[in-house]
């Protein structure tokens, strides 16, 4: 946790994010578009500089499971239950595809 928060200083975040194009290629477009409302809280590309968890590069399986649990009220949250209820299961899959694809893209 400590290392992670150290790494996520704003300067490093800017360096990672700046100039990385947010590709709108058709395959990932729907997921990217849905993710745009998440990133105001979770940070650009889901890389959070502060207390809200990072989504960037988390596994597809974990993201789907967590979001479905939030939606069903099976996982404690302060706010995510109220947000997750606004998305269909298909939306959740698309969003999970998008955030989980991000690390791969960076390595390429």
């Amino acid at each position: 946790m400590r290392i992670k928060s150290l790494l996520c200083t704003l300067a490093i975040l800017t360096a990672i994010i700046a100039g990385v194009p947010m590709s709108l290629h058709p395959a990932g477009k729907e997921g990217l578009l849905l993710s745009l409302s998440c990133t105001s809280c979770h940070g650009t590309y889901g890389l959070s500089p502060g207390a809200i968890p990072t989504l960037y590069g988390k596994s597809r399986k974990y993201l789907i499971k967590t979001l479905i649990e939030f939606r069903n009220g099976d996982r404690d949250s302060t706010i995510m239950e109220r947000i997750a209820k606004g998305y269909t299961e298909n939306d959740i899959r698309l969003i999970a595809n998008y955030f989980s694809s991000l690390t791969k893209k960076k390595k390429k």
Partner: peptide, 23 residues
């Protein structure tokens, strides 16, 4: 403790959105 958690996340929201705008 829930109100306190929301205060922490409110700061987290602020850090994220200002970075998303200006960072």
């Amino acid at each position: 403790s829930v109100r306190r958690a929301e205060a922490i996340y409110a700061q987290g929201w602020y850090d994220s959105i200002t970075q998303d705008m200006f960072g």
